[in-house]
C-alpha cells in the first residue's frame, strides 16, 4: 500500500451529538471490561456503556441512546475529553458508533493522536463556542454541521465559527498522510542510520 491510497479528510459533514462535561475519561468512553477482545470490531455498541445502561442493561437517558441523535457523525464535547488511558479502543468505539469528527474545548494528547491515526479530526474552540454548538445541536438534531479541517471552521445553521486544528493534524488530514506506516517505512535506511548512531543499540543484541 502507498500513501497515495490514503484518503484526505478535508472536511466532515453530518448531524451532531453533544456529550456534556469536562474530564470525560477513557474508562467512561469504553469501560475496560469491553477491551477483552483481539479486534476492534463491534466496539461501537459499548461506547459510553456504563453511562447508557443501568445494572439490568436497560437504557438510560444519554445522547448516544437518544433517538434524535442516531446517525450523528459530529460529536461536540467539553474540556479534557479522552483523558486517562492510551486505549485506542476509545476512538475506535466512537468511530464504530458513527463518529467521524469531534469538536471540543480540549483533548487529552494520546486520545487526539489516536483519533488522528483513524482519520478523525479533533478540532478545538473556546468553551462559549463549544457550548453554543452543543445547544444548537440539541435544538437542531436533524441539521448538518460541517467541520472544515482545511479552513479551520465549523458551520452550523447560518453560522460559521472559527476553530483550531493542530498544525500537524491539519496537514496530515488534508494531505491524506494520517496513516503513517507506509510514510515512515519508506525511510528505513535513515532509521537504520539513527539506530546505528545510538550507543545502546547493538546489532542483533537484546538490550
Amino acid at each position: 500500500m502507498t500513501t497515495d491510497e490514503i484518503p484526505a479528510v478535508e472536511s466532515v459533514s453530518g448531524t451532531g451529538v453533544p456529550i456534556r462535561g469536562n474530564d470525560i475519561d477513557t474508562d467512561q468512553i469504553i469501560p475496560a471490561r469491553f477491551m477483552k477482545v483481539v479486534t476492534f470490531d463491534g466496539l461501537g455498541e459499548f461506547a459510553f456503556f456504563d453511562l447508557r445502561f443501568d445494572e439490568n442493561d436497560d437504557p438510560k437517558a444519554h445522547p448516544f441512546n437518544d433517538e434524535r441523535f442516531q446517525g450523528a457523525s459530529v460529536l461536540a464535547v467539553n474540556a479534557n475529553f479522552g483523558c486517562g488511558s492510551s486505549r485506542e479502543h476509545a476512538p475506535q468505539a466512537l468511530l464504530r458508533w458513527g463518529i467521524d469528527a469531534i469538536i471540543g474545548e480540549s483533548f487529552a494528547e494520546i486520545f487526539a493522536g489516536n483519533c488522528l491515526a483513524l482519520g478523525i479530526p479533533t478540532v478545538t474552540a473556546d468553551s462559549e463556542t463549544v457550548e453554543t454548538i452543543q445547544e444548537w445541536v440539541e435544538a437542531n438534531p436533524d441539521d448538518e454541521i460541517d467541520v472544515d479541517v482545511a479552513a479551520e471552521t465549523v458551520t452550523y445553521g447560518g453560522t460559521t465559527a472559527d476553530v483550531t486544528v493542530d498544525d500537524a493534524q491539519r496537514k496530515a488530514l488534508v494531505d491524506g498522510v494520517w496513516d503513517t506506516t507506509a510514510l515512515m517505512k519508506a525511510n528505513a535506511g535513515e532509521v537504520q542510520k539513527t539506530a546505528a548512531s545510538l550507543p545502546y543499540v547493538e546489532d542483533g543484541e537484546r538490550a
Partner: peptide
Amino acid sequence: FGIGTSQIRD
C-alpha cells in the same frame, strides 16, 4: 510515553 494501537503498528 504511551501510544495507541495504530502507533504500535507503526
